[in-house]
Design a protein around this nucleic acid. Structure first.
Lengths: 97, 97
DNA sequence: ATAATAAGTTTATTTTATAAACCACTTTAC
DNA sequence: GTAAAGTGGTTTATAAAATAAACTTATTAT
């Protein structure tokens, strides 16, 4: 009847991160924080979870002298997101308006 | 950028309950438990939360001599569900296939 | 009468999300 | 230079949530 919702994606902030990363080549920590409105601590934790699940890749670089954490969605991440959306459809009658 | 996801609805079980109740006139506790696969304890708690939020109405009746808890979605519940779906769309590129 | 089952509820436990506190470094002001 | 403030995060502690286990009350079967 209802498909299981991947708990790693069924989280407002993590879903936002993934949604954002789906639409860009990559994004840095600060940009993601600004776009999602998350606190740095929360973002750090959630990014780490997504990374450990293999849904995103993290590259620590520098922008000038400042540290810069780049995030990029992986193919597994894209697949998991698509499956999550598919599962959601079992709960929700979606129509594009 | 991303709309807020009503935390009361952004829960796998509660979303399932609401989705189910949207499609029927009403449903009893046992039926909801069967359809969602939830344990009775979990279902009891989540139904209570939805009820306290005014999203569903609970009527305690009897089926023969057995207690029977009937649930029915309220207009506020329908509205909240629709808003939740709308918010979800800010995270997810939905297409009907 | 006793045992098993049904329909829930209450309570306790585990997990999760979130924020507060902190660290390393950089820039700005004196 | 050195102190103060700011940037980019991480770690740790707290609050909230989901979930299951244990319990209650009544019913049916033996």
């Amino acid at each position: 009847m209802f498909k299981e919702l991947n708990p790693l994606l069924h989280s407002e902030l993590r879903l936002g991160i993934m949604s954002l990363l789906l639409s860009v080549e990559d994004a840095d920590f600060v940009y993601i924080r600004e776009q999602t409105g998350a606190t740095a601590g929360n973002l750090s934790v959630q990014i780490d979870k997504l990374s450990k699940a293999g849904y995103i890749e993290i590259e620590k670089t520098y922008k000038g002298k400042m540290p810069c954490t780049l995030c990029k969605i992986t193919p597994e991440g894209v697949k998991a997101f698509e499956q999550y959306v598919d599962a959601l459809k079992s709960y929700i009658p979606f129509k594009d308006e």
